[in-house]
């Protein structure tokens, strides 16, 4: 019989934590790209574009991430493609992240005074020029803190990918529990790992926010 020491548990969880980090980064970057595209559509003068993005956001913020993961998992299979937990988790988390980021960023763009848009327009800047040179640079400073803060939500969200069989920290926790029969220790360690990943990011976000507020005062 093999004995599992605390070191064995920690080592195995650490190995799996890599995949939590990788999945979080992919979802965050992918979500950022999709979110940016949606943001342009959301801010554009096109009424249909705006309504579409609003519906998209409602859809992803009004349903559980778990259901979105299942939908991606079974939906990709329905298209006749070979589904892996990887593709399903990446797809679902990317779309989920984009829906939240576009809403966060929209708030930041709206925090830029209306007069800035109007000044840009009166200088005969087109919509895209206005966005690129006048509004976005200002919105970007406001956006940094909440965007960093949302990364914590993404990391925590990846825990749900364990349900569709993606082996990351939480799934590894279940597997190690099944091997060691020490759920109390294992899940404490899993929680600790997440805390170590997320807490520094939360702190950075909080500091950024404070700094920004100080600058505005």
């Amino acid at each position: 019989m093999v004995e599992f020491t605390l070191w064995d548990i920690l080592r195995n969880l650490a190995l799996a934590a890599r995949w939590t980090v990788v999945l979080s980064l992919i979802a965050f970057l992918g979500g950022g790209v999709v979110g940016a595209a949606l943001l342009v559509l959301r801010l554009s003068p096109s009424r249909i574009g705006r309504a579409l993005v609003e519906g998209y956001v409602e859809l992803f913020q009004g349903t559980p991430l778990l259901v979105q993961l299942f939908l991606a998992y079974f939906g990709i299979a329905l298209l006749g493609l070979n589904t892996s937990a990887w593709t399903a988790a990446t797809l679902a988390l990317t779309l989920y992240t984009s829906a939240f980021l576009v809403e966060i960023w929209r708030g930041c763009v709206e925090a830029v005074p209306r007069g800035q848009w109007e000044a840009g327009t009166s200088l005969a800047l087109s919509f895209s020029e206005n966005l690129r040179y006048v509004v976005l640079p200002q919105a970007l400073t406001i956006a940094i803190a909440p965007t960093v803060g949302f990364l914590v939500q993404v990391i925590k969200g990846t825990a749900l990918a364990s349900v569709i069989g993606f082996v990351e920290l939480t799934k590894a926790g279940s597997m190690v529990t099944n091997a060691t029969f020490r759920p109390f220790v294992v899940y404490s360690c899993v929680g600790l790992f997440y805390f170590v990943l997320c807490y520094p990011i939360s702190l950075v976000a909080k500091n950024l926010e404070r700094k920004l507020h100080a600058a505005h005062r």
Partner: peptide, 11 residues
């Protein structure tokens, strides 16, 4: 706030 709900539930 810095750990996922599913881990809290499993714990």
């Amino acid at each position: 706030r810095n750990t996922p709900f599913i881990v809290q539930l499993f714990f």
